[in-house]
């Protein structure tokens, strides 16, 4: 498997660390109800098809990436810098 890092280009997946669903980008408010935190921390879809997940280009530029890919065809549909997606927050 290969991922095209927006900064580094196409690289072997062994350069990347996989974290999980990109839902991790949507951190609830600190005082949000427990159910919102439970959802954020533990509840995940398991789609046969398109999924967005977070990969860290650990052996490359150090960028966290949002990779949109298809779990059935293994197509990597898009790769974006996580901090570009969250640019308006924080």
């Amino acid at each position: 498997m290969r991922i095209t890092c927006p900064l580094c280009g196409a690289r072997d997946r062994r350069e990347f660390h996989y974290m999980g669903d990109a839902v991790y980008l949507d951190r609830p408010d600190p005082v949000a109800p427990a159910v919102a935190w439970d959802d954020y921390l533990h509840l995940r879809d398991n789609p046969a098809g398109e999924t967005r997940d977070l990969w860290f280009h650990e052996a490359g530029c150090g960028a966290w990436l949002v990779v949109t890919r298809n779990t059935v065809s293994h197509d990597v549909l898009s790769v974006a810098l996580a901090d570009g997606i969250r640019g308006g927050a924080g």
Binding site: H17, M19, Y24, L25, R27, L54, F56, E58, G62, A63, W64, L81, A82, D83, R86, G87, A89, G90
Partner: peptide, 19 residues
């Protein structure tokens, strides 16, 4: 050492990129 660095990058880039 590695996991903490990765975690700090995550917190910065994914949760608080404006810092």
């Amino acid at each position: 050492a590695g996991p903490v660095m990765r975690h700090m990058e995550f917190v910065h880039q994914c949760l608080a990129p404006r810092l």
